[in-house]
Design a protein around this nucleic acid. Sequence first.
DNA 1: TTGACAAACTAAACACTGTTTAGTAATTTT
DNA 2: AAAATTACTAAACAGTGTTTAGTTTGTCAA
Lengths: 205, 205
Amino acid sequence: MGISERKERERQEMRDLIVEKATQVFIELGYEKASIRTIAERIEYSPATIYLYFKDKDWLFLEVQSVSFGLLLKEFEKTQTIEDPIQRLHALGKAYLDFGIANPAHYELMFINKEPVNCIQKDEVEWHNGMKVMELFRSTLQSCIDAGKLKITNIDIAAFAIWGMVHGMVSLYVTNHYQVMDIPDEVARMMVYQSLDATMELLKA
Amino acid sequence: MGISERKERERQEMRDLIVEKATQVFIELGYEKASIRTIAERIEYSPATIYLYFKDKDWLFLEVQSVSFGLLLKEFEKTQTIEDPIQRLHALGKAYLDFGIANPAHYELMFINKEPVNCIQKDEVEWHNGMKVMELFRSTLQSCIDAGKLKITNIDIAAFAIWGMVHGMVSLYVTNHYQVMDIPDEVARMMVYQSLDATMELLKA
DNA sequence: TTGACAAACTAAACACTGTTTAGTAATTTT
DNA sequence: AAAATTACTAAACAGTGTTTAGTTTGTCAA
């Protein structure tokens, strides 16, 4: 009875197709302006079909977010070969800045928009990628603290300070809010990296 | 001929009424879910009337943002009595955190949403408040640098690092993205303040 | 005070949006 | 071949921002 297996496979392929095309549309237009009808056109099915595979727009979007987190995770994992925890942490920070600046649309979908679905429900979907990104960051931070190489010794405080800073800078850059500072684009980009460098320097024990 | 003056006054009153009610609705529902029709209901006029006073939803929203920036500015100005520039900077940071945490809806309208209108056009409207907030921050920062009390001596780098950090932390808090850190609300709030304190300590020359 | 003009306002429409319902077409099972 | 199940969609619903065309209101000169 290979039929049900094939059906299951086809169903998964259809899901993947929807997520793939939805990702394109979300990236191109942003969350609000990306419409179910546009996504439906891209997959060459009627809008109603999407609702046979996803509860609503938010849950589809969550799946798309997971794809974006996968991209960031890949960049993060590249840093894990670095031995020195402080250098590894610094590299994570740079990777974060690189990712946000190179993929502002992805970054916006991941971190700027309000969370579409609250955490309790998220377990239902493959939310791994976002969690893994966080775990990588925290474990690296813990290594720094364990090695006594960080001036801030509480992991939550350090996490908030560092993640807050890099996220804040990328947010300001991505949303153009930094423009009130009246400095050109390239300079702003430089400042972002130098601010990370400076802060990392201050953080070293 | 006081008639045209009265008319001008009435027109301004109508504008103010719209902005006042629009602010309420934006705060209650957020940018996307706040509808022109809902705002129209609150002012007890038809939706079309709003378009006689504002080009479109974005320009009305810009006016509302200006109100929010006025609130932040008021808090910022309270810190200006402090003599020591470092302490003043620290107080500014705290005021920023206080404001964001106490008024998450306002904060979201001001800093999380993408800019509705680009900067070049903004001059047409009273965009002063946002600028003044920035000026206050930068002048305080400059005072710290001039007094040789800051480890970072480039104002743009310091601005990006500090504003980035406080904005980032408030953003993470306001959008609930910090929840991936798996710490309760009150703890997160504490962390935010302690992260600022720790960073300020590191920044001191 | 009346008639003309201008300003203020709105009902209705247009082209969209997310989502649901009811019904059709295709496929699998009996 | 008939029945049952699955996959899909056309059409509708209630909402959105915005525009148009027309009405009501207020002002001013005759």
